[in-house]
Amino acid sequence: MKPHRILALVIRHLYLYKRSIPRLMEVFYWPFLDLVVWGFITIYLTKFKGTLPSFIAFLLGAVILWDILFRSQQGLSVSFLEDMWARNLLNIFVSPISPVEYIFALMLVSIVKLLLASAVMILFAWLFYSFNIFLIGIALIPLIINLVIMGWAMGIVTMALILRLGQEAEVLAWAVAFLFQPVSAVFYPVSVLPPFLQTVAGFIPASHIFEGMRAVISGSGFPISELVWATSLNLTYLTGALIFFYWNFGVVRKKGLLAKVGE
């Protein structure tokens, strides 16, 4: 891996945000809006339910962490789409960059976007609702890392599918994370799911992370087993996603589709 190639692509994507209001909205406005809407919903629900302990923290924590997962997936797949829309993939892949360098560059782009979006959400959650996500403490770090990795795995699979299927698969870049949301136990515990879906949720890293978050917020400590499950599943899925991408990249080259992506 050559750092100058990775840096070149990171800079290419960051240039996009210099003078594009819609792209800046993607980073700052939508996360902010998400937080405000969910914050008001939470306040409204707490009035009905009386004083449900940690209710605000559960929901706002879930909103912030879900956004991290969502943004890390989008950081890869939308950046890939930007190259496709600009008809720039050909220029990139006739350069000496390798697919793994390309993916690594987009991972770094996703981290930059994620840090900016998370900073906005964390700041306004604290300002508007007095919710300090850092109260979760040191446990927050492995939770976030796992969500980012799951987002990346989804992002890589999405990129591979867009590469193979072309523009008709673009919608996946926005929708794929939401396919997993019902079984990710973001806003409710896994126990409310029917038995079959509970089994499915067991194979979704995010469900272990959100269960862990609720355990920490409710003061029952961080269940290490949840973290071990999430990490093991994530490493498996990330490896699988990379293998899938490489295999698919080969198929796309065999079929002569690489030069046609975006047409």
């Binding site: 840096l7 070149a8 960059i97």
Partner: peptide, 8 residues
């Protein structure tokens, strides 16, 4: 500049 960096 991006492509110059890409090619080192």
């Amino acid at each position: 500049m991006v492509f110059a960096r890409l090619y080192g």
